[in-house]
């Protein structure tokens, strides 16, 4: 009996590209979720900025990052408390400035967790069932079916990541202060050896749940854990190629962005949204390609 031919990382990456392009609805849906979530959060600073939009400083800010303004926002809590003791008191937006920044920093991880947990089941189901025609009904069934399980596993993985990163960070600082900065070369290599497999485990936990049609994410986690030892090179190759794609997109954007006049916002809006779509696409290519290495 002939042994099954194993897909190489390059083949998986190419298939990922094909599969992701075959289902543009997936990219569109993921982008719309990102845009709508972004808009939802952006409403708060937009409303806060209505009063400051009467200030001449808004024109400086519109022309790019104005460090003087950034400083004043960062120092706004102190300034607010000092000005509170004066006769006229501080303007209300001064207190709101730091609160809004704080709120966004808090809300982003929560919304990222909710949207990713919801959409991932549907997205992976579309890729696993390729080359079947795309069905919105099947897509949203997938989203809903795995929503609860993915909420749980993403929460657990996030907590584990935070713990892992904290331990690694403390270890790096302690090692560097004890042995000198040269040890950072070793810790950097170790970090890559830990972070990439960790990312692969996270990706494959979701994928195995969909492939095996199970909501037992712990079983899927176990299979993902075994896979990184079974096909380490193929996985490293796929992740490496995806990272390269992301880096190329980033580089193109970094070259293009500074040439845009910041206050010409319609053009800036189009370019930034194209970048967001490209960034999303590079992630979907990785997920779609991962289907072939199981």
């Amino acid at each position: 009996m002939e042994a099954p031919v194993k897909t190489t990382s390059w083949q998986a990456f190419r298939n990922g590209l094909t599969r992701s392009i075959r289902y543009p609805q997936v990219i569109l849906c993921a982008y719309l979720f990102n845009l709508l979530t972004g808009l939802l959060l952006a409403v708060i600073p937009a409303l806060t900025l209505v009063d400051p939009a009467h200030r001449t400083a808004i024109q400086d800010a519109a022309n790019g990052i104005d460090m003087w303004l950034v400083e004043e926002i960062l120092g706004s809590t102190t300034t607010y408390s000092i000005l509170q003791e004066t006769a006229s008191g501080p303007p209300p937006w001064l207190q709101q400035a730091s609160l809004v920044v704080f709120f966004i920093l808090l809300a982003v991880p929560v919304l990222a967790w909710l949207t990713a947990s919801f959409l991932r089941g549907g997205i992976l189901l579309a890729y696993v069932e390729a080359p079947q025609p795309f069905s919105w009904q099947r897509f949203f069934w997938g989203c809903w079916h795995w929503f609860g399980a993915f909420l749980l596993i993403n929460l657990l993985l996030e907590i584990a990541t935070l713990l892992l990163m904290s331990i690694l960070l403390v270890g790096i600082v302690m090692a560097a202060s004890a042995a000198g900065a040269w040890i950072n070369w070793i810790t950097l290599s170790l970090l890559v050896l830990i972070i990439v497999p960790w990312l692969a485990i996270s990706d494959y936990t979701h994928l195995f749940a969909v492939v095996d049609q199970t909501r037992n994410v712990f079983k899927a986690f176990g299979k993902a854990f075994i896979l990184i030892f079974r096909r380490p090179l193929a996985l490293a190759g796929l992740f490496g190629l995806s990272l390269l794609m992301l880096l190329l997109i980033q580089a193109a954007f970094r070259i293009l962005l500074p040439s845009l006049p910041p206050d010409w916002w319609p053009l800036v809006f189009v370019v930034t949204q194209v970048f967001i779509i490209a960034r999303l696409w590079s992630r979907l290519v990785r997920w779609a390609g991962a289907v072939d290495i199981t």
Binding site: G38, A42, A112, W113, A116, V268, I276
Partner: peptide, 16 residues
């Protein structure tokens, strides 16, 4: 610009 930064942060946090 703020919208773009928030969208980027959502992607960076593992979201979509």
């Amino acid at each position: 610009q703020i919208l773009y930064q928030i969208q980027n942060m959502l992607l960076g946090e593992g979201g979509l």
